[in-house]
Design a binder for these strands. Structure first.
Lengths: 337, 337
DNA sequence: CTGAAAGCGCTTACAG
DNA sequence: CTGAAAGCGCTTACAG
């Protein structure tokens, strides 16, 4: 049905080799021949079959990005930035959404491998993630974005979680808080454990009240977050501030706390992590930690393309920690004892 | 580097034809032979090259979805639902984001054609969209989702915009409003013109104040929406309610109005369109029109796969209008004159 | 039950 | 400047 290179060759009376040359802008074609071919290509709107081409060249100009949850603004913003950047370099980005489900991730990565992507940008991996480890071992150019593996030598671009948590807690301390409830992300993700570990370490250091009862594991389903908040608020001595391990959860906390009729920040302060665009909305005004989403996203895709194109020295893993920043908004204030 | 079917054949001492048969679960292979092959495949984690396969079969099991703005929750929710549904049928969804830019859309669609997608789900088209028209004319199975073409015979699944606008305006009338400001979407999209046209028609019918000064074209950049709101509020007789043509803009309106220190809904009511998940958030509580996002998304992908698989009768275009519903929340109330 | 051969739509040395 | 031929990794009649 669609025109093929062979058709173009036949219709212009040249060989397929010649058509291929003009298609790829290679030298050594008589201008008249080239013009004739170009004209026909335009006329019939011929598009080369990239998959066929890739069988010979080994390159698909396709990058697979795997995200944990495309409805979380953190990931959709990142995907948007990365896609535009990729296109500038003539790569097509294909995005798969795992919904934080490891089986879905497996399926998606396999589908991408079967389609011969040139490289992977993975923003969904668990700490011990067999499939992702396989991909790296198999030699696919790969960059982990936002979440890393336990394994040490993988390329990653992540926020300096420890620093971020410190900024958040120091801010709360300066406001006069002493008792902070923490809603952690799932421990199977690097963000989950690192933010949690830092929370515990910094809490101690800053002289906060500590104890397992102040720490709840949230999930990515709202119900879990709500349960966690309830438990914190029902404590004999409830915390004066809640630190949610990411903005997506902080939004759920905020929703629930307001629903309950509590005033923020007078009765309870809330702080998040990520600084998704919505955090700045006037109805939300969430104090949070800016993890440099755009810088990270751009760096990730640039580095990946450099690896694919062989421009980056590959001897040492690329491991970049982004510098977090505190964003003070209206969801935090001094506690009224 | 990676194992090929040929390797598997060589290592098990059979022909490539036989390996291909077991790969595709075709009958007529001796059980022992099959077992031997299956075992090796597992052992070396062999993955068939789907693009090579597709050259013979003509099917890539890949569906291209084009969205207008992946950071707009409307589209990310839809993409998420559609991707999971596609995977159930063994299709891989690849998503491209146009950012409402027609040139990007062109590039994305071309990239998808070059990769031989089996069909298109397009949620980004302008009313007169040469590229999309081409795709349809070229015979690709295609369903327009959310936005349609001016051209009459294309498949689409959209909300009944007219009905939706009527619901919104009737609600405002019942609250006692008589003067409504409208922030329309760009007129180049079907949603833009249809919601606008219905606004004008219904306003007249319901006896509202009418006039071009009550209608402003918003954009998808925040600055435009802000400018539009300012102009409405600076009118000698400003409207008592603002109707934004979609929730994404309604959120911007809300942000700006609160920023200005106005109380919602006492001083101004705000109503949106789409019912994105965030509209229900306690900090937002936006009254809006539910366009049946999930029903539409699921229907769209099911229908598309039916067309691709040849299960759907193709004689008449598939044209489905979803029934909108009013969601009353706290952003609308009676005006205090 | 199995294999040899052709071919899907391209590219790329090689030869002229 | 141009073309014939081989081959990328698969599938599929066809023959046995």
């Amino acid at each position: 049905m669609a025109f093929t290179l062979k058709d173009i060759a036949y219709l212009t009376g040249v060989s397929t080799a010649t058509v291929s040359r003009v298609l790829n802008g290679k030298p050594g074609v008589k201008p008249e021949t080239r013009d004739k071919i170009v004209k026909l290509i335009k006329e019939v709107d011929y598009m080369p079959d990239i998959t066929a081409r890739s069988m010979k060249t080994g390159k698909t100009y396709t990058i697979g990005m795997v995200v944990a949850d495309i409805t979380n603004p953190f990931y959709s913003e990142a995907a948007k930035t990365i896609e535009f950047q990729a296109r500038k370099h003539n790569y097509t980005l294909i995005v798969g959404n795992t919904g934080n489900n490891i089986d879905e991730e497996r399926t998606i990565i396999t589908a991408f491998q079967e389609r011969n992507v040139d490289g992977f940008l993975i923003a969904s991996s668990e700490l011990r993630d067999k499939k992702v480890e396989n991909v790296i071992r198999a030699g696919y150019p790969t960059i982990l974005y936002h979440r890393r593996l336990a394994q040490e030598r993988a390329n990653f671009i992540c926020c300096d979680e420890e620093k971020g948590v410190e900024l958040a807690l120091t801010h709360l301390k300066n406001l006069g808080h002493r008792r902070i409830g923490f809603i952690s992300g799932p421990r199977k993700f690097s963000t989950g454990v690192e933010r949690l570990r830092s929370f515990m370490a910094s809490s101690q250091e800053l002289g906060f009240d500590t104890g397992a009862f102040l720490i709840k594991e949230g999930g990515y389903e709202k119900s879990r977050t709500i349960k966690a908040v309830k438990e914190l608020l029902n404590l004999p001595e409830p915390p004066t501030a809640i630190f949610a391990a990411n903005d997506f959860m902080a939004l759920q906390v905020l929703d629930m706390v307001l629903e309950k009729g509590m005033r923020v920040p007078d009765e309870i302060s809330i702080i998040g992590f990520d600084d998704i665009p919505l955090a700045a909305h006037h109805s939300i005004q969430l104090t949070t930690i800016d993890v440099q989403l755009h810088t990270g996203a751009i760096t990730a895709i640039e580095k990946l393309i450099n690896i694919i194109d062989g421009l980056e020295n590959f001897s040492e893993p690329i491991q970049i920690l982004l510098e977090p920043k505190l964003k003070v908004r209206a969801s935090t204030g001094s506690p009224c004892y």
